[in-house]
Design a binder for these strands. Structure first.
Length: 697
DNA sequence: CCGTCTACGTA
DNA sequence: CGTACGTAGACGGA
């Protein structure tokens, strides 16, 4: 029996650090499940949606609503919904159970879009395909007034909610037709929907937070932040004089480091092609030789001077002026002095140069406010710095910037989103162009790497004497590039146990012994660059990139084949059937193929982290269930799985990870009917928290 | 108030 | 012509 389902729920506006955000989750005790709408597929058509009140301020709850819904779920074999992960989280959190399959119309639409990042809301899709519409205008006023669904009149909710179900049913019917026309996408849709059900569990489990550990790390960071802030402000005063200081401001930092002020920001942006394209990617800077670059910089900036502070001669230092209203009364808030902008002082430039006088080297160093003050640019220019004052300033500034991010994004992020010491991140399936997950609220995919980041001490087991176990695929993207391309040399590297990143490191370090050597971690970027169509860099990097494609010539040949496929079909298809569209793939007169870097990257990224890893996670989840483990899957970060391990289950959890994550061949047979016999390997770490992890043999 | 830009971090 | 992401703060135009 097939059903289509949609829930409505209460949502609370929350405040954290003066910022407001809407909490829609079932994990917030002030949010309630308000209603459930259900339509049933009978004799090939959807019946009229039934609508149940669960919790509402004025409407009595539907008599036996919960058990009626549970009875439907018990007979259901396919549950359809738009963004059904949200509905399932609510149902499970309210005690409902469901064992059948799901079909998320949003997820299916995402797969049908083939990497084109177009809107996926039910409203837009209904409009686009001329389906029965959502009735968003019914609730718009209530939403604007921030009325909770719990308080919106019941008749309105019922009409709105039923319309959502009807709209979703129609979209599902249409998708059946479109999927039949592109039947190679069906296995990906089915796998993704199975994966969705594991993700629901992961999000509900969440990560347990040790608040004391988090507070301790926060205190340590804040102490260091205060010290760096004080010391940097002192030094800024020496080189800038008595000016307003904001080390978070790109505008101020540009002037501080480069001693120049942009005359006309609009013209500056135009000159250096600063901005983002329709997909949010940075535009390419213009090609200028050093002479042209220097000339443009000189003619469009003024040199900054240390100002002398004088009392404002208009307001006499008060900052406001004695102006009366038309009625002759004084203003409640006296108008600001226009001359000094309310500061009471005016700054007269002297002949002394201000700032740290770094010289930008090229267009890549420019930004909208002038010049970039990020880690890479500053480290690059640090070598050209005239004295130790500048060098140590740069070091301390870089450390402060990092600590500020750690505190504002990560420490605050955890505190902002956790519910009762459990952090339920969102694992989003329909965001990326490639098919991998994204993570939000908070983003747990961009935490600094484990052993470098003490904040991870707060990620602990919820079980007394429990532990955190993490398993990740070794060199997955490199291996899958080898599988997809059939490159014999990549396969040989894997079979002979050659570490590709160590190889890269040694190649680059042996190229010229006079240059500083790089670490294995740093070499990773160089391994991936040629794999994803990159070729520019320093002489030793370029030599390595050329060497990579010569060594792994199968990869180079595959890149050419992919480009041809993209030009011919405007599409690239993976062995799993997943597709990506490249509508502008053409060969330009200079032989370069538009969108090359995406054409060669998407298949590897998508296959490895969008097809292989989800299959490994589904398999691991099945093993946990079969063995009745109490340990919980709690997170995945692209090529890794985290488990909150129940004490005593450590060995069995590691066994499940080993079997599950390495059963891709079987999983691919099941979902896609294809072989994936390329050798895979995983590494397993265990610890009392996500910081103190030790590799387990 | 909202979009753009910069910066931080990850695989 | 490495790719893919999310979040916070500053800024600037409505």
């Amino acid at each position: 029996m097939h059903f289509c389902l949609d829930v409505e729920n209460g949502a609370e506006y929350k405040t954290h650090k003066d910022k407001e955000w809407l909490d829609l989750t079932p994990f917030n005790p002030s949010n309630q499940l308000v209603s459930v709408g259900l339509a049933q597929h009978v004799n090939g058509v959807w019946d009229d949606a039934k609508y149940f009140c669960i919790n509402h301020s004025s409407e009595p709850s539907y008599p036996d609503g919960k058990s009626i819904i549970q009875n439907y779920l018990d007979t259901c074999t396919l549950l359809v919904g738009h963004n059904i992960k949200h509905d399932l989280k609510w149902l499970y959190s309210c005690g409902f159970t469901y064992d059948g399959k799901v079909w998320d119309t949003q997820l299916a639409e995402y797969i049908l879009q083939r990497g084109a990042k177009k809107p996926l809301s039910l409203a837009v899709l209904a409009e686009e395909h001329d389906l029965p519409r959502k009735k968003s205008d019914l609730i718009q006023n209530y939403m604007d007034r921030r009325e909770s669904f719990y308080n919106i009149p019941w008749e309105v909710i019922e009409e709105y909610g039923k319309a959502d179900v009807v709209s979703t049913c129609a979209l599902y019917d249409l998708q059946n037709v479109r999927m039949a026309e592109s039947s190679h996408l069906i296995p990906t849709a089915k796998m993704s929907n199975d994966f969705l059900q594991v993700l629901v569990k992961m999000e509900i489990h969440g990560v347990a937070i040790d608040q004391d550990a988090l507070d301790a790390v926060e205190d340590a960071y804040k102490e260091r932040q205060t010290e760096l802030d004080r010391s940097l402000h002192e030094r800024v005063y020496q080189v800038m004089g008595d000016v307003p200081v904001n080390l978070n401001s790109p505008d101020f930092c540009s002037e501080l480091f480069y001693s120049r002020r942009v005359v006309d920001k609009r013209r500056w942006k135009h000159l250096f092609n600063i901005g983002t394209d329709s997909r949010g990617k940075a535009l390419k800077p213009p090609l200028l030789n050093p002479r042209q670059f220097t000339r443009i910089v000189r003619t469009n900036t003024t040199i900054l001077k240390i100002p002398k502070v004088e009392t404002c001669n208009v307001c006499g230092g008060v900052g406001s002026i004695d102006k009366l209203t038309r009625q002759g009364a004084p203003y409640k808030i006296p108008p600001k002095c226009a001359k000094c902008d309310g500061s009471g002082v005016i700054l007269i430039p002297t002949s002394a140069s201000a700032g740290l006088r770094l010289s930008p080297m090229s267009t890549v160093d420019t930004s909208a406010a002038g010049f970039r003050a990020n880690k890479t640019t500053l480290l690059k220019l640090r070598d050209t710095a005239k004295n130790d004052f500048v060098k140590s300033f740069i070091d301390d500034f870089i450390e402060l910037s990092a600590i500020s991010t750690y505190l504002s994004t990560f420490v605050n992020g955890i505190n902002k989103f956790k519910h009762d010491n459990i952090l339920h991140t969102n694992l989003n399936q329909t965001i990326t162009a490639t098919g991998r997950l994204s993570s939000s609220s908070p983003n747990l995919q961009n935490m600094p790497r484990g052993f470098t980041f003490p904040v991870k001490k707060c990620f602990v087991s919820r079980f007394e004497d429990g532990s955190i176990i993490e398993a990740d695929y070794s060199g997955l993207e490199f291996r899958m590039a080898g599988h997809l391309s059939g490159c014999p040399s990549v396969r040989r590297y894997v079979e002979e146990g050659i570490d590709p990143h160590a190889f890269t490191r040694d190649f680059i370090n042996n190229f010229d012994s006079n240059l500083p050597s790089i670490t294995r971690q740093e070499a990773k970027a160089d391994t991936f660059k040629p794999l994803y169509g990159g070729s520019s860099g320093s002489p030793r990097q370029r030599a390595y990139y050329a060497g990579f494609l010569k060594e792994h010539h199968g990869v180079a040949e595959w890149h050419e084949a992919l480009k041809k496929e993209a030009i011919r079909t405007k599409m690239v298809r993976l062995p799993t059937g997943r597709e990506y569209v490249f509508p502008y793939a053409t060969r330009l007169p200079n032989k370069y193929v538009n969108q090359t870097t995406q054409i060669v990257n998407y298949p590897v990224q998508g296959f490895a982290t969008g097809d292989v890893v989800p299959c490994g996670i589904i398999a691991t989840d099945r093993l946990f269930k079969q063995r009745g483990l109490r340990s919980l899957l709690i997170l995945t970060v692209h090529d890794s799985i985290y488990v909150d391990t129940y004490p005593g289950e450590e060995e069995e959890v590691m066994e499940c990870l080993n079997i599950g994550m390495l059963s891709i061949d079987e999983m691919f047979q099941e979902f896609y009917g294809i072989n994936m016999s390329f050798p895979l390997a995983i590494e397993i770490k265990e610890g009392p928290n996500a910081f103190e992890m030790k590799e387990v043999r």
